[in-house]
Design a protein around this nucleic acid. Structure first.
Lengths: 227, 227
DNA sequence: CGCTTAATTGATCAGGGTCAATCGTGGTGG
DNA sequence: CCACCACGATTGACCCTGATCAATTAAGCG
């Protein structure tokens, strides 16, 4: 996996990626024996708000969105997860977050009780749980940062760069999620996301071939927009 | 400590408070011998971005703000911490977040190495680290939710309710932080915060006696605004 | 090839940002 | 003790961006 050079020192996505990579590799061994493999079709609900928090998951393939549904009908997407990411572990007894398959995907489901039991005797397991939590925390903080950005274009640019890193594509990226998903992740409307994309296209910053296949023409320009 | 009834099921601040309380009580014993007490005067920096992450903190008294400074000069406040809260633990070797004293405050500083060493042998310590991380995660997610809210008034209302819970004041609350602090926490400008406050005052939802002393006249109205 | 849904584009509007002036408060010194 | 000062907070006027509503285009899929 290629490590992209960080563009701005402030948040260091490169560091985040390095952390994530290290943590993934350390994660595999002790947990892999415990879980059960699950397949979820595109659009299917993996777990829902209100359910008991007896399981958590690791993505083997595909993309997952973790979100909450608000009283006013809006949907807030907290994160997109790709292969190697874990999600669905919560402190309380009842889930606050839902998770859905953005694409068909294959997961490993772990029993929370079992892992917590393991953690009591095996320090590497408890360390992994801690690292998982801190990793999620770091991601959530990056998301806060994204949401607090002023302009729509800045948000979209930051999103594209983040996603490019997550998928490590050369300079083309495939967006598996809809514009609505992106909008709900960035706290914008579909229209604003679309307009920003079109603007980037006019600027020759990106090139679209189909709404979900993007070629980065001028990464520096994107990074400047992020500012 | 009084547990406020949750107003909307979606996020359950009451549950968050209960979790926090439980975790605080469990936290005290194994860690309290390890730390050193520190006093910080109002406005003073406690730790800064770029420093090594060799210590983390617990608040004994006073209020702390944790924030990051962005390239464009803006400041994003991630959280306000009060007595019993912990902060400053990060995964990487270098801090991403700064912390400053909102009021004069007294802290306990823990050596990260020492605690991590303890965690290797003492499972209760590692469990506490995990709980700390998950608790922070939950808070960060609440903050994301706050930032994604549409209106300025909604944000301010939510902030006032959250703060009331944190400090458990009957129906009056003292705001130790400036309007600028609130604005940077909510992703607004001082003016918007001020306008929202004034609006609530005109609505007879709150009463101000001095900018930082607030009496809640109509909590239900605040909660409705939160929507 | 046509249908259905996603995405784009356009026109209008409202809410919050910005700039600027005023008010209030707390603190200091005469 | 009071007057003044400095800074934080409020208020007002205006502008600009993104939300909203509506129409059109494009794309994926049977």
């Amino acid at each position: 996996m290629r490590v992209q050079q960080a563009t701005k020192s402030e948040i260091s996505p490169a560091q985040a990626l390095a952390d994530r990579t290290a943590w993934m590799s350390r994660l595999n061994e002790p947990l892999k024996s415990a879980g059960t493999v699950i397949d979820a079709l595109e659009g299917r609900e993996i777990c829902a708000e209100g359910q008991e928090t007896e399981t958590f998951y690791k993505v083997l393939s595909g993309v997952v969105r973790v979100c909450r549904f608000l009283a006013d009908g809006r949907r807030q997407i907290e994160a997109f997860h790709v292969a190697g990411d874990m999600f669905g572990l919560e402190l309380g007894d009842e889930r606050v977050m839902s998770a859905e398959a953005v694409t068909d995907c294959r997961l490993v489901a772990y029993r929370r009780r079992g892992i917590e039991q393991q953690a009591k005797t095996d320090h590497t397991v408890s360390q992994q749980l801690f690292q998982y939590a801190m990793q999620s925390l770091s991601q959530a903080q990056c998301h806060s940062l994204l949401l607090s950005r002023r302009g729509a274009a800045e948000k979209v640019a930051a999103f594209l760069l983040d996603w490019m890193e997550k998928t490590a594509g050369e300079n083309t990226l495939q967006l598996p999620m809809s514009r609505q998903d992106i909008a709900d992740y960035l706290g914008l409307t579909i229209e604003s996301v679309s307009r920003s994309m079109s603007q980037f296209e006019r600027n020759r910053t990106i090139a679209l071939s189909g709404a979900r296949h993007i070629r980065i023409l001028n990464q520096a320009a994107l990074e400047d927009t992020t500012a």
